[in-house]
C-alpha cells in the first residue's frame, strides 16, 4: 500500500499553475484549494509507470459501431 500522496512542487509552483490556468483563487479558499491540488499532483507518479503493449493504442475514438450494417 503506498504512502499518502505527496508532490515535490512548492506552494509557489502550485500557485503558478493556477495562475497559468487563469484561475484566481479567492483568498479564503487558497489553503484548501492548494491542499486539494497537492493531493492530486501527488498521485501523478502512478500514471507514469512503463506501459504494456496491451495499453496501446489508447482507443479513445471508436468508429466501428458507426458503420452501417
Amino acid at each position: 500500500m503506498p504512502s499518502a500522496p505527496s508532490t515535490d512542487l512548492s506552494d509557489d509552483d502550485i500557485a503558478q499553475r493556477f495562475r497559468a490556468a487563469g484561475i484566481v483563487v479567492p483568498a479564503d479558499r487558497a489553503a484548501g484549494t492548494a491542499a486539494a491540488a497537492r493531493r492530486l499532483l501527488g498521485v501523478l507518479h502512478w500514471l507514469r509507470a512503463p506501459r504494456s503493449v496491451a495499453a496501446e493504442p489508447a482507443a479513445i475514438l471508436v468508429l466501428g459501431e458507426r458503420v452501417p450494417r
Binding site: 499553475r17 479567492p26 484548501g32 491540488a37 493531493r39 479513445i60
Partner: peptide, 21 residues
C-alpha cells in the same frame, strides 16, 4: 470550489497518461 478548481493544475499529458492507464 476547492476540489473542482484543483483540476486546473493538471496537464494535458496527465490526462492522456490516465486514459492509457
Amino acid at each position: 470550489y476547492q476540489r473542482i478548481a484543483s483540476g486546473a493544475v493538471l496537464s494535458a499529458a496527465d490526462l492522456v497518461q490516465a486514459q492509457r492507464l
